[in-house]
C-alpha cells in the first residue's frame, strides 16, 4: 500500500466530514422520500353508513354527484387536487361549509345523509403484505 506507515494512523477530519455528509444525506432523503410518499394523492372514497359506495380519482378536476338512499351530495375536485362539497340536500349544510380537504386521511362528514368523504392512500401502489429476510 502507498502509505500506512507506522504511527501515522489516527482519526482525521475527513472522517467526521464523511459521517456528517452521510447523516445529512439520510435526513434529506428521509424528508424527500417520505414527503413524496405522503403527498402522493390517493383516492377519494365515499362511504354511506360504513359501506363504500364509490371511489373518485383526484387527478382530473371534475364535479361528481352522488345519489344514494335519498342522499344527494355534489363533490367538487378542484385543480389543486382539493376536494370540497358544493351541494348537499341536508338541512344545516355543514359539509358545504367545511374547508377543502387535500391530504391523505382527511375527511368531510355529512351526518344527516350518513355520508363520509375521505382521502385514502392509493393502495394499488403499495401492495406488499410482508417481508422476510
Amino acid at each position: 500500500m502507498p502509505s500506512s506507515e507506522i504511527g501515522a494512523l489516527k482519526i482525521k477530519p475527513g472522517d467526521f466530514f464523511l459521517l456528517a455528509f452521510f447523516l445529512t444525506l439520510s435526513i434529506l432523503s428521509f424528508f424527500l422520500i417520505y414527503n413524496s410518499y405522503y403527498s402522493t394523492p390517493g383516492i377519494v372514497q365515499i362511504h354511506h353508513s360504513g359501506t363504500l359506495i364509490s371511489e373518485l380519482p383526484l387527478d382530473p378536476p371534475d364535479n361528481y354527484t352522488i345519489m344514494y338512499n335519498g342522499a344527494e351530495v355534489r363533490v367538487r375536485v378542484s385543480n389543486e387536487r382539493k376536494v370540497s362539497v358544493i351541494y348537499s340536500n341536508c338541512p344545516l349544510k355543514l359539509c358545504v361549509k367545511h374547508k377543502e380537504i387535500s391530504k391523505n386521511g382527511e375527511s368531510i362528514v355529512c351526518l344527516p345523509n350518513k355520508i363520509i368523504i375521505s382521502i385514502k392512500k392509493n393502495k394499488n401502489k403499495h401492495d406488499i403484505d410482508t417481508k422476510t429476510y
Binding site: 489516527k10 482525521k12 464523511l18
Partner: peptide
C-alpha cells in the same frame, strides 16, 4: 488507495 491522505480507516469503514 486514493484518499488515504484525507481519511483514516474510520472514514473508509463508513
Amino acid at each position: 488507495k486514493m484518499f488515504n491522505r484525507i481519511i483514516s480507516p474510520v472514514g473508509v469503514s463508513i
